[in-house]
Every structure is written in structure tokens, then in C-alpha cells.
């Protein structure tokens, strides 16, 4: 039972996020209004994506140093689920932007960089599928995975700071901490981040176990 505690925590926190995130009072601001609630759903997606891509990169490094195919499975599945969270983050952002910026897609640098990051990981899967040999596939795609993750940093953390952006926290726009004077949002935001991260890890864990079983039946 003791290994399940974090799954229970995930479900409880997710329920709390959904109920409190949609019903708790929020600071009423011009333009933003109720859309500020998107904070609990949009921002944690990016945290989860980065964590999962990080796990994927670390497992790729571990694969290259150990040569165990299990590590390759961890790398692929976390990249897979990370991609899912990235797409969800893009969609939640687009819905929010539709009501605040007036259009779902406005060529904002943050949106463009996200799209590029997702393209990089799509390329990773195309590269994987161009091999038939298991070991060769694992090794070459591990090399590309590490390279892509390293190139993600200039993309996500340097380029957006070079140009103006409409996004909260950039180009003189206040981030949520300035709106949140009475710490009302934080009460939901921090649990929400933990909840979505745990959900991401949970999905990844199930997928990894599935692939491990497939690998076992393949090798025996």
C-alpha cells in the first residue's frame, strides 16, 4: 500500500485543483477577470513538460553510459508524455489568449518558441522510427535527445527575453505574483503544480511498465 500514497495524493490534489481552482474567489482585474483561473491549469503544464523532458534527457545519458534498454524506454515514454503536456499547455494558452489577447494565436514569441520545442520532439520520434535495429535506435536517438534538450534552453529561456511579448511576466507585463496581493491564488497554484506533475509521472510510469513487459516478451 505504501507505494500508492502518491497516487492518492495526486487524485486528492487534482480534485482540489479542479474544485478550488474554479470556485475560489480570485482577484478581479481588468481584461483578465475570471481567466486568471487558467493559472492553475496552464502554467503547471509547462512545469510538468520540462520535468518530463528532463527525466527523458537524464535517462538518455544513463542509457549511453550503461547500455541498458530499460533506460531507453524511460527516455522515450517520458518524452512522449512530456509532448502531451506541451500540447495541452499550448491549447490552454490558446484558449486563454482568445479571451485576453483577442486571438488564439498572435505570433507571440512564447507561442513560437513552444511550437519550435514541440517540433524538435516530434523530430525525435520520426528519427526513432527510421531505425529497425533496437540498440542502434536507442543509441542514436539518445544522442539526439540530449542535443535537443540542451538546445531547448536557449529557446525557452534566452530568446523570449530578447524580444517583447504580451505574455504575463514579459515585456513589462506583470506576472501573477503582482496580481496576487492576498496570496489567494497561491493556495491553489502550488497544490495544482504538484498535482499535475504527479499525474504526468503516473501516466509515464504506466506507459513505462507496459513497454517493459513488451520488451521482456520480445527478448525471451
Amino acid at each position: 500500500m505504501k507505494t500508492y500514497w502518491w497516487k492518492a495524493l495526486c487524485v486528492v490534489l487534482l480534485l482540489y485543483t479542479l474544485i478550488a481552482g474554479l470556485l475560489m474567489p480570485v482577484p478581479a482585474k481588468d481584461i483578465l477577470n475570471e481567466t486568471i483561473r487558467n493559472l492553475h491549469f496552464h502554467v503547471p503544464m509547462w512545469f510538468t513538460m520540462i520535468i518530463l523532458f528532463g527525466i527523458s534527457c537524464v535517462s538518455s545519458i544513463q542509457y549511453l553510459s550503461s547500455g541498458r534498454l530499460q533506460k531507453d524506454i524511460v527516455a522515450v515514454q517520458s518524452a512522449n508524455v512530456g509532448l502531451l503536456f506541451g500540447i495541452l499547455g499550448l491549447i490552454t494558452g490558446a484558449i486563454w489568449a482568445n479571451y485576453t489577447w483577442g486571438a488564439p494565436w498572435s505570433d507571440d514569441i512564447k507561442q513560437l518558441c513552444t511550437a519550435i520545442a514541440l517540433l524538435m520532439y516530434f523530430a525525435y520520434f520520426v528519427l526513432r522510427n527510421s531505425f529497425t535495429d533496437l540498440d542502434k535506435r536507442a543509441r542514436v536517438s539518445a544522442v539526439y535527445n540530449i542535443f535537443a534538450f540542451a538546445m531547448l534552453f536557449p529557446l525557452l529561456f534566452i530568446i523570449p527575453r530578447m524580444t517583447d511579448s504580451l505574455h504575463p511576466g514579459n515585456g513589462g507585463n506583470p506576472a501573477f505574483s503582482q496580481y496576487d496581493l492576498d496570496n489567494e491564488l497561491r493556495k491553489v497554484f502550488y497544490p495544482a503544480v504538484i498535482a499535475w506533475m504527479l499525474l504526468g509521472l503516473w501516466i509515464t510510469e504506466i506507459r513505462i511498465r507496459m513497454r517493459m513487459l513488451e520488451l521482456k516478451s520480445l527478448l525471451s
Binding site: L119, M120, A123, V126, L127, S130, F147, I159
Partner: peptide, 18 residues
């Protein structure tokens, strides 16, 4: 991967954008 220009474009273009 045994195939060059097409795969290189897919892998490279997103990375070259910065």
C-alpha cells in the same frame, strides 16, 4: 539513420531557429 537530407531538415530546422 541511413537517409540524409530530408531527415536532416526535420532534425535541424527547429534547432537552427535560435
Amino acid at each position: 539513420a541511413g537517409q540524409s537530407a530530408a531527415l536532416m531538415a526535420i532534425l535541424g530546422f527547429p534547432i537552427m531557429i535560435p
